[in-house]
C-alpha cells in the first residue's frame, strides 16, 4: 500500500492540520509516513500545500512530485496546481464552496463537495478541513475513520477540548456525504 497525498489550501483553512491528522493516524495504524513542506513554484503568499506519503513499507523518495494519487484543493487559488499534480486514476477532492469553473478531467476522478458550506452549517467555517478529511477517508480508504477520530480526540482534546465534538461531527459529516456520493 502506498499513497502520495497533497493537501492544499489558503491561509487559515487548515490544510497542514489535515495532513498532520493523516500522519498521526497512519502511525496509529502502524504505517510509515513522511510529510514535507511546500517546495517548488506553487509556494505563494497565503497558500500552502502539505505533502504526505503513507506506506506499509519503508518510504523511498519523500518528495511528492506531481504524482499524488490523493489531492485536496480547499481554495480557488491552488486548484490549478492540485489539478496538475494528480496521477491518472488518482482522486482530486475539491471544495466546491470556494472553487468556481473547475476543469474537466478524464484521467482521474474529481469529487466536488461544498465543505465550507457544510462547515458553516455545523457551526464554523473553520472545520471545513475536517469535513473534507472525512470525505477523503470515505473516498479512498486511506485510513479508518475511527483512527482519525482518535487522533482528533488526542490532539485537539489536549488544547481545546470544547472543539473535539465539533471536529468529530465535521469528520463524520464529510465521511457520510462522500459515502452517499459514491
Amino acid at each position: 500500500m502506498l499513497h502520495k497525498c497533497m493537501f492544499s489550501g489558503s491561509g487559515g483553512q487548515g490544510s497542514a492540520l489535515m495532513a498532520k491528522m493523516v500522519c498521526l493516524g497512519a502511525i496509529k495504524e502502524n504505517l510509515k509516513v513522511v510529510m514535507t513542506q511546500t517546495y517548488g513554484i506553487e509556494q505563494r503568499g497565503g497558500d500552502s500545500t502539505a505533502y504526505v506519503i503513507v506506506s506499509d513499507e519503508p518510504i523511498g523518495s519523500p518528495i511528492v512530485e506531481n504524482d499524488a494519487d490523493i489531492a485536496v484543493a480547499l481554495s480557488q487559488s491552488i486548484y490549478g496546481n492540485c489539478f496538475a499534480g494528480v496521477v491518472p486514476d488518482g482522486m482530486l477532492f475539491t471544495n466546491s464552496s470556494m472553487v468556481d469553473n473547475p476543469k474537466e478531467s478524464d484521467a482521474f476522478k474529481q469529487v466536488f463537495l461544498p465543505v465550507s458550506d457544510t462547515a458553516v452549517q455545523l457551526g464554523t467555517v473553520r472545520c471545513a478541513n475536517m469535513v473534507m478529511l472525512g470525505a477523503v477517508l470515505a473516498g479512498t480508504g486511506l485510513l479508518k475513520l475511527e483512527t482519525v477520530e482518535e487522533v482528533v480526540r488526542e490532539t485537539i482534546g489536549n488544547k481545546k477540548p470544547q472543539l473535539v465534538e465539533l471536529n468529530i461531527e465535521a469528520l463524520r459529516s464529510g465521511y457520510s456525504a462522500m459515502k452517499k456520493e459514491s
Binding site: C23, A26, I27, L31, K32, V33, V34, M35, T36, Q37, Y39, I59, P62
Partner: peptide, 9 residues
Amino acid sequence: GVSAQTTES
C-alpha cells in the same frame, strides 16, 4: 536541510 525539515514516523 530538506531531509532535516522533513517530518516522518
